[in-house]
Amino acid sequence: MLSDLLARLEEKDRLALARLLTLISRGEQLPEISSAIGTRNETTPVVAITGNAGVGKSTLVGKLAEYLRGEDKSVAILACDPESPLTGGALLGDRIRMPSRPDDAGLFIRSLAAASGHQAVAEHVDLMIRLLAKFGFDVILLETVGAGQGDTAVRELADVVVLLVQPESGDELQWEKAGLLEVADVVVVHKADLAGAEKTEGQVKELLSLPGSREIAVLRVSSRTGQGFEALWEAVMAAPRRGTTLDGRQLLRLAQQLLADRYRSRGAAAGPIIDRWKAHQLDESQAAEQLLDLLVR
C-alpha cells in the first residue's frame, strides 16, 4: 500500500501526494515515509507567512502564489487553521482567500488543522515539506495559525519567515516587538492600501533599528491593489537562508514526534508510573526517565 503510493509519487501522481500528506498528518507510517523521501533538497525555498488572525495571511499567500505562477514557479501551499481543543473539529477556511486554478498543475493547496495549545502549524509539517519538495514544487508557502505561539517551531521549519502587521496604533506595535525581533526575516506592513501604512512602516523600522538587531527588510504590500509583491519576493530571496534541514534537529524532531505518538497509542501503560509520581513515590525526573524507558522499549 505505502510502496504503491510511493511509486505513484515518483510518477507525479497528485492523488498519491494528497494521500501521503494525509498519512503524515495522522502520524501514520512516519519512519517509512521519512526514509523513502530522504533529506530535503536545499534548493526549494520554504517561506512561512505569520501574523495575527485577520492580518491577511491567506490573502497574501494566495496573491504571492499567483505572482510566482506568473514567474513560472510551481507553488505548494500548506495552510494551517486551529483545531478546537474541545472536539478536535476544525473549520479550514483559508482556501476562500486563495486562487482557484483547477487546471493548473503548478499550484497545490492543502488545508491543515493545528492542534490547540501552542502550535503555530500542524503536526509533522516538516515531513510534509520534504514530501512537497521531493514532488518537485519550486516554492513552498506555509501559512501559520497566527503569531506569538510556537514561533520557534516555525523558525526551525522555514528558510524565511515573513511577519505580517497591519496599519495600526503604536501601542499595538509595542506588543509585536518581541515577535518582530525574534522570528521575522522580512516584515510586511500589509493592507498598505489603508491609511497609516507609511507611519506603521516607520514605526517598525524604528523598532528594528535597535543596536545589535539583525538586518530585516520592511516593506509595504497590499493584496487588494497588488502593490509590492515583486519587492516582497526579492526580499524573501535576499534574506539569509536559515539552512534548517541537514542537522540533528531534523532527526530530533522526528524522534520527539515518534515519542508523542507512542505516548498517545500506549499511554495507558504509563498509568502506574503516573500514579507513583502523583503519590510522591517518584520525583519528576525519575518518573520522566521511566516513562522514556517505557516508550522506547
Binding site: E83, S84, T87, G88, G89, A90, L91, L92, G93, R95, I96, R97, S100, S111, A113
Partner: peptide, 11 residues
Amino acid sequence: RDAGFHVIYPG
C-alpha cells in the same frame, strides 16, 4: 466542526 469534523470550505 463542533461535532469534531474537519471542514474545508473553499468559498
